[in-house]
Design a protein around this nucleic acid. Structure first.
Lengths: 198, 198
DNA sequence: TGTATTTTATGATTTAAATCATAAAACAGA
DNA sequence: TCTGTTTTATGATTTAAATCATAAAATACA
């Protein structure tokens, strides 16, 4: 999102995270701007019974965790490397300086936040008023536009596990499995050796 | 959020909306930046059975509806005046010009979007993994900080109807009524002639 | 290559919240 | 002040999704 050259000019460092390594934790105060160079990071919450809710999944060139940084508030969720990652980390003070001295970047940040807010609005309405099949399909259609689903001869490959889809839509894995089967029967999805295509 | 003087300098007009009048509708493309002068606006979705989900409620000096404006996307929800309102309307082109020529405003927009994203993150996790009482209490505690709840000798008056709380948390009105009663019994809330205090 | 773990799958059962039904209290407006 | 509407309230019933139980297939990994 912000060019590597500009980030490095303001002193950003590259840091590697192992698979399942924690990037930051719920309740902590933000001190860095994070931007992924390679790999995949997920932000999620766990309730008291250990049930997970995935706030978002982020890929290369995407930033994450800015809202609490701008607000001086505690992180509302955990960030974990889903796979081995390389990430730019820029200290808050240097990041704010970068923004001040490069007004065009602000618009990019605004657009990025707007995009994420849009996704959250759509999914919030889905989760609270629609039945499982509708929720799953909406997530998938959003994912085609904004997650990195690849197209092949069968259509877009939805490279999420049933469990991940459940954690993104507030459904249990069995419910997701049944919803996907029902959607296949209706012709909305294809299942080709257990993989889901849209 | 943006000062009236600056808005007017860039040609913003004041428009009055009657109670229940539509400001914009889901599916339409944005053409204006909106900022409330007086009154109350709610953004919400309706599912196929007419069930409502309230995305947010906005009060004086707050803006709303920017994400799709920045993204050139259709509004994902409807905006309706809950009571008689007066609103600044600034055309998209003039708004973008205002931002370009006043970089400090960008940071305010960023902070505002960050705040809304933070709220959505918290409520999304609540709605998908917590039981009714927890959801209601979280909404109320958020409301004390960000909606305009007033404090008096009994505590903060939660000036939402049970139905509104339900539409904000994805619960039915009967469930909200029962959750509030249970929370009163636990000493988390007070009910004084049907009004809820925290 | 064999073993452990994860993912997908399916049927049976339970349960929390929705739904349905009804009504009293409060409020709004004529 | 009367009347219609909205809000709060409560009990009974239903239901959709969660939970529980179990297992096969696929994948990771040592």
């Amino acid at each position: 999102m912000i060019s590597p050259e500009l980030l490095e000019k303001y002193g950003a460092l590259k840091k590697a995270f192992d698979k399942n390594e924690i990037v930051f934790e719920e309740g902590n105060l933000p001190t860095y701007y994070y931007q992924i160079i390679a790999g995949e990071v997920k932000m999620s919450n766990y309730n008291d019974e250990g049930r997970e809710f995935i706030q978002g999944i982020f890929y290369k060139e995407q930033s994450f965790g800015e809202p609490p940084l701008f607000l001086n508030q505690k992180y509302p969720a955990n960030a974990i490397a889903v796979e081995e990652c390389e990430v730019f980390m820029l200290s808050k003070s240097n990041f704010m300086k970068l923004l001040e001295e490069n007004p065009a970047i602000s618009l990019k940040i605004i657009e990025n936040l707007a995009q994420r807010l849009y996704y959250k609005s759509v999914m919030a309405a889905e989760i609270s008023t629609h039945e499982p099949e509708h929720r799953v399909l909406k997530l998938i259609d959003h994912g085609i536009a904004y997650f990195n689903f690849q197209k092949d001869k069968n259509g877009y490959l939805i490279n999420f596990t049933r469990q991940q889809i459940g954690d993104l839509t507030g459904l249990r894995v069995e419910t997701v499995i049944r919803a996907i089967k029902a959607l296949e029967k209706k012709g909305e999805l294809k299942i080709i050796n257990r993989k889901v295509y849209r």
